[in-house]
Amino acid sequence: MEISTERDGGTVVATPAGRLDGSNAREFQDALDAVVQDTERALILDFEQVSYISSAGLRVLLVTAKALQGNGAELALCSLDDPIREVFGISGFDSIIPIHASRADALASVKG
């Protein structure tokens, strides 16, 4: 899975695309693992181009959040469309991963 990334100081913004489900969870995980290695302060996942996330995709986010935490960094999400935002609400994942309306908001919050 190709994930384009941009770097802003110690923060990396990654933009996954398409469906994040059981069929590509392994690739998604591998791609994020590589990004986590390069992240000093925070990883922002811009969900602008994500159309669907299943529980297998959520699991990858959970593993990623834990890995970042272990390195003293944090994970944040931004630009989720309504159905995906709802998945985070129902599963309660919005209480452990900060979710921002826009990329600018997410960048501002991690720079705090």
């Binding site: 599963s91 309660g92 994942f93 452990i96």
Partner: peptide, 28 residues
Amino acid sequence: GHDAPLLVQPDGSSTLLPLTGGIALGVL
């Protein structure tokens, strides 16, 4: 972290019962 229960009336109309704000098990 599970979907809200759906309450269905005998006439087929329905409402979602409120969620209780819990997170999926095994996470926190």
